[in-house]
Every structure is written in C-alpha cells, then in structure tokens.
C-alpha cells in the first residue's frame, strides 16, 4: 500500500510531535530526578556520578523535628486553603458557568485577574496590606494570600465541568416535587462531585507547592517550600533534595490516589 505524499508528510509530522512531546516531558522531569539522585548521595556534597548511595538523608529528614513542624504547617495551610477555596469557588463557579446574570461577563474576567498577576508582587502587596492593617503575619495570613490566587484557579477548574451541567435536571427534580434542599442533595451535588473533587485536588496541591506567596506572608512560620529555599540560598544540606523529593512524592501520591478513587467510583454501577 503506497501513501500519498500528503499522507506521508502528515505521518512524519505526527511522529515529530510525539517525539518532541516525549523529549519535553523528559526535560520537565529531569530536575525532579536530579533532586532525587542528590538526595540518596551518601556524602554531604553532591558529585555525579555518586560514589556511594544511602538513604541516610531521607532518614534524617524523616526524623527531624524541625521538618516535622514545617510539614505540619504546610499541611495545615493546604488543608485550610482547600476547605475554604472549595466552598467559595463552588459558588464562584456557579456564577461563572451555571447562571445567566447581568454582570456575568465582567465577573468572568475579574476572576482571571489574580491569575494574570505575578505572584511575588502579589505576595509583597499583601504583606504591605496586612501591615497597613496592623496584622501579625502567621501561617493564617498566608492561607488568605493563597486563597487570593487559588480560588480563581479552582473556580475555573469547577466552571469547566459546570458548563456541561444541564439546568433542566434541577428544574425536572423541582417539578417532580423536590424541595430546594432535595434538589441540591439529590441532583446538583452528586452530578457535580467530580468537578468539586478535582477543584479540591488543585487547591490542596497548589497550596502545598506554593512558594512566592508564602515567602512574604507567613511571618515567623515557615512552610516546606520556604525552608527549602532558605537552605538553597545558604547552607545546603542533602536534606534539601531529600525533603524536596518527599514533597514531590507526596503530591504525586495524592494525585494518584485521587485519580484511582475517581476511577473506582466511576466504574461502580449506578446502584
């Protein structure tokens, strides 16, 4: 079977695109792998190829009380951000994609503004603002800072799914005798769960990995990315790549776990 020159060119470009995508994916994960390699180095100073490998820095990181506190701070922030962001963004997404109302077009654009804004500058601006209000910085103020950026992102994530929600379903339930609360419980929420879950996932992971907003707004508290940065700039120890790798693996585990859970729920019969 001979192909036309046209079809051959198409096949060539498809192959190029696949190769290029593979190469870029590889590049994206190269530094993450490098961090992993550095974390299993036995010595204090990194040289490649490694002379000896050991998990001792992982063990030290794991046992460190200081790092335990960092992780607790980061988890508390991410947890609180997730809960608040999901609630605000759920209604935000309803206003974005579900209801037709007078100010919707403008609202849709205003929501984007914090996303289209450099985070370090936003962090500094919040620092200034908290200061002007006479507030003490702590991880709670950082939670608020995270929300300013994460709520719009989660709103978009949820809105994309809400666009495909058929408004007639709610009306039908209402018409069939359901009260407003029953409509929400029996129809709206069950159908929108996937979007809410992915929104929660985004909120948690984006907060967990955020550095520029935390840097200026945590005050004396320190999150994992902040600590890593401080040690990178001054006082490298292999605990830096070790903790970095742990944070990455934790994020991957959360993502994977949620993905598998979602798949299991989807496969379940309608009963």
């Amino acid at each position: 079977m001979s192909l036309s020159p046209e079809a051959r060119a198409e096949r060539r470009s498809a192959r190029f695109i696949a190769l290029w995508t593979g190469f870029v994916v590889l590049a994206i994960y190269t530094p993450i792998l490098c961090g992993f390699v550095a974390s299993v180095n036995k010595g204090r100073y990194f040289r490649f190829p490694l002379a000896k490998t050991s998990m001792e820095w992982w063990q030290k990181t794991f046992d460190s009380i200081e790092i335990g506190m960092l992780v607790r701070t980061s988890l508390a922030m991410a947890g609180l951000v997730t809960v608040i962001a999901v609630v605000i963004a759920f209604f935000g997404a309803l206003a974005y994609a579900r209801y037709d109302w007078k100010g919707r077009r403008l609202y849709q654009k205003l929501v984007l503004l914090p996303i289209f804004f450099p985070q370090p500058v936003l962090g500094l601006a919040l620092l200034l603002w908290f200061n002007a209000l006479g507030m003490q910085m702590s991880w709670q103020t950082a939670v608020f800072a995270h929300l300013v950026w994460i709520v719009p992102v989660v709103t978009l994530v949820m809105a994309i799914q809400m666009y495909s929600f058929d408004a007639a379903l709610e009306e039908a339930a209402f018409d069939l005798g359901a009260s407003r609360l029953q409509v929400l419980r029996e129809v709206t929420l069950p159908i929108l769960w996937p979007g809410i879950w992915s929104g929660a996932l985004f909120a948690f992971l984006l907060s967990w990995g955020n550095f520029p907003l935390s840097l200026y707004t945590t005050g004396p508290d320190t999150s994992v990315p902040e600590w890593l940065y401080a040690k990178m700039v001054a006082g490298y120890t292999p605990m830096v790549p070790a903790l970095g790798s742990m944070a990455t693996i934790a994020a991957a585990a959360v993502l994977l776990g949620m993905g598998l859970l979602a798949r299991a729920l989807r496969k379940r019969p309608a009963q």
Binding site: L169, E171, A172, S179, A270
Partner: peptide, 22 residues
Amino acid sequence: LPPNRRPTCLVFQSLALFPHRS
C-alpha cells in the same frame, strides 16, 4: 405556586433524566 407543589409534570425536551441514577 412553585412547580414542586403543582399537580402537573413536565417532560423536558432533553428528558432531563438523572444521569447518576438507574
């Protein structure tokens, strides 16, 4: 009178069957 209190029922154009239910 709201629809959930009317003794009437509408069959929607899209049918509006609940996709998450049997």
